[in-house]
Design a protein around this nucleic acid. Structure first.
Length: 276
DNA sequence: TCAAGATGATCAG
DNA sequence: TGATCCTCTTGAT
């Protein structure tokens, strides 16, 4: 589930397990073998995330940059390592635990300067302190692009993926195809505050829950359900199912190659009254 | 056993 | 806009 909260939780877990420790670093699959050899037996300083980018810092100013893409996984285990299972690109290990990276399109050694470049081009990240949501607003309110597209653009906003996009738009009663330049600043301020709260919760729990207590199936007198991505949501991957609030069929479409989900009644075009 | 699909991003045309 | 990369799971055959 590689949205921003996943990477921030990973950074925290890696720092907790390996921070300040001399670690063994390897690449069982072999594609990161040369770089891993440089890091093997050195001290892992800590890890940090910027949006969907993860940076693991080692001594001597060496950083591993990981991007999980659509299918990558970085699993952290608090048990000593056993034989690698599957295509493990990168393994970090001590006698206390290990972490295995699989499927990531990006796993590379980078310098501090390269990290600064990535950070400079990234939009504000709701999960980092002292971020300026006004930088995102400056792009949104000048753009005729769909808000559903702008929210996913990592140069506009860092860390939001398909699930948070669908759910944030639902919670703010915004149709995903509504142009960014038709939004009011007050709407964006509320959306940013909501993102900070939802994503912070996601880091804590490791899942995406967006349904307000008054809208849970239990509160609405409906049978409980389980979403297969491990979280309680309003519309994401619920196409053809009934909206939890109004009962309309949730719709789906493809926007810029990605699946879009919305409720046609709760999220009418050019209306913005909040669900709350 | 095989193909499709998945919570991303980049590049060529 | 479509192709490509990366891996694993699920469902169809």
């Amino acid at each position: 589930m590689p949205e921003g909260h996943t990477l921030h939780k990973l950074a925290r877990d890696l720092s907790d397990l390996f921070g300040g420790q001399v670690v063994r670093v390897g690449s069982p699959q072999g594609r990161f073998a040369d770089s891993a050899a440089l890091l093997d037996g050195t001290t892992l300083v800590g890890a940090d995330a910027i949006g969907k980018h993860l940076f693991v810092e080692f001594e001597a100013g060496r950083f591993v940059h990981v991007h999980l893409g659509l299918i990558g996984k970085f699993d952290v285990y608090v048990v000593p390592p056993g034989p690698p299972v599957g295509q493990v690109r990168l393994r970090i290990a001590t006698d206390r635990g290990h972490a295995d990276l699989r499927g990531a399109p990006t796993c590379e050694l980078v310098t501090r300067e390269q990290i600064d470049e990535i950070q400079a081009s990234a939009g504000p990240d709701p999960l980092r302190a002292e971020q300026d949501p006004g930088r995102a607003w400056a792009k949104i309110h000048r753009s005729g692009r769909a808000i559903g597209s702008l929210l996913m653009d990592q140069h506009v906003l860092s860390g939001v993926g398909n699930v948070y996009r669908a759910e944030l738009l639902y919670r703010h009663k915004l149709h995903p195809l509504r142009p960014g330049n038709t939004l009011r600043r007050s709407q964006w301020v509320a959306m940013w505050a909501d993102l900070v709260e939802l994503m912070t919760d996601g880091v804590r729990t490791g899942r995406i829950d967006t349904v307000r207590p008054e809208h849970t199936p239990e509160a609405m007198g409906r049978p409980p359900r389980v979403d297969d991505h491990g979280g309680e949501v309003y519309v994401y991957r619920r196409s053809g199912m009934d909206c939890l609030v109004c009962g309309s069929r949730v719709r789906t479409a493809v926007l810029e190659g990605r699946n879009l989900f919305w409720c046609p009644r709760c999220q009418r075009p050019f209306r913005s009254r909040a669900v709350r």
